[in-house]
Design a binder for these strands. Structure first.
Lengths: 231, 231
DNA sequence: CATTTAAGAGTCAATGTGACACTATATTAA
DNA sequence: TTAATATAGTGTCACATTGACTCTTAAATG
């Protein structure tokens, strides 16, 4: 029972952002074997010295690859088996993080020769990923979609201030379907999470939209019911 | 990065059952340090040789402590930190399992000097637990309650055949509140998960209740809406 | 000042819910 | 044979929330 075991423990954050009206995740190109030159999640081994706990290990990985800060980091699931890494038994804890649209860009440091935002389509990303990372991404996307359909987490992705249309777009992009304007508005009204600011217009000669900020970027409101989708 | 690290990896199943109209979980008394003679979850280290993956590691732990089989095993969350075990960095993957009411009883083998079913009250169990196991139990109970309020998992706890009242009781015991008969009936009807069998009566001189079986013990039906509780 | 066009408020049928009243039925006692 | 009993199971309804749709509002432009 007291065998000094050799199970590798890592964290794999799936970092989401939205730009160009598409959902994206952050990938890094591996520069060591196994799966050298293959795209992978920006994860890595938990460091006994550096990391107090799993959550901060995930935050550290996040910081190493991007300059942006997260308003949301949630554990998704943990996969562990003898076969998922050719080097032997390994366990990885999958997280998903939401970051606002990146302006200054990525730091291709820390063992990653390349870093990039990859579009998430209907069936995950278009490139093959190392290890079982496609499965991890799938799980994270499912969780994100579920969460967005019954909470206000998606609002955290927006740069402030934002219009209601921005909010609606974020939901539609992540859920990959139309969302009823009025329905979403009602939900955010009852969440009491938005504060109005001033005004602006988006395109030429139309009525300007109100601008909002979040009262508290840390708070996530749960809708009384999940968004049901089209009838 | 390639430091041979020493993170201990374990699984901790929270095994639920219902008898005497109360929710219970299985605990074992530790017979080694640390926390010797303290009650704990029936978990243990993942064994690289024995276990193919985390799920089967949890099943193995379950089998070592009870003779019953599970119809439901679900991963809850993973906790890992430098401080949760005095011996150093450790990670544990928490599962929750549902088993039918135990008849032949527990095997107090495998490093546990004592095994027992402990009642789960409003605030978890009444005895202090080793490590952070109270937190793990709390997380598992929350997840169980959530799941029971929007799925048919609870039905898996019943020995077949069962009456509708049995089903209602199971829900009420786990959720720790009254559940509307008609509301629950509607949900199970639309789940199309029950098959009628014959008849029986429970107490003396009243109308006998129909007996049911589950069409498929593996299938879990998701209700269209969460049970909302009293108005 | 009329026109344009999206913002955003109003309205409504459909759905599912909790609550509670009501009916059905096997057993037992008269 | 029949009435009483007590739980099993069904009927009904007000209420809340939803998706869908329509209507009003308002700044900017020409």
């Amino acid at each position: 029972m007291n065998n000094a075991h050799q199970i590798q423990t890592s964290v794999d954050p799936v970092i989401f952002t939205v730009f160009d009206m598409k959902l994206h995740i952050l990938l890094v190109k591996r520069n060591i074997e196994p799966y050298k030159d293959c795209w992978a999640l920006p994860g890595g081994l938990v460091d006994e010295k550096l990391d107090q706990d799993l959550h901060s290990a995930a935050l550290r990985k996040l910081k190493e690859k991007t300059n942006v800060t997260t308003h949301y980091l949630e554990q998704v699931e943990t996969l562990g088996s003898a076969s998922r890494d050719p080097r032997g038994w390994s366990v990885t804890v999958v997280y998903f993080a939401l970051v606002t649209v990146p302006e200054e860009n990525l730091s291709a440091a820390h063992g990653a020769s390349e870093v990039r935002w990859e579009e998430v389509g209907k069936n995950g990303v278009a490139v093959p990923l190392a290890f079982d990372h496609e499965k991890l991404v799938k799980a994270a996307v499912e969780r994100l979609r579920a969460k967005v359909s019954y909470t206000t987490v998606a609002a955290g992705l927006l740069a402030e201030p934002f219009t209601f249309l921005d909010l609606q777009n974020i939901h539609e992009i992540i859920l990959n379907r139309k969302v009823e304007k009025k329905s979403l508005m009602r939900r955010y009204e009852s969440s009491e999470l938005l504060t109005e600011v001033n005004e602006t217009r988006k395109e030429g000669r139309m009525r300007p939209a109100k601008l909002y900020r979040l009262k508290d970027r840390e708070t996530v409101h749960y809708f009384v019911r999940t968004m049901e989708g089209p009838r």
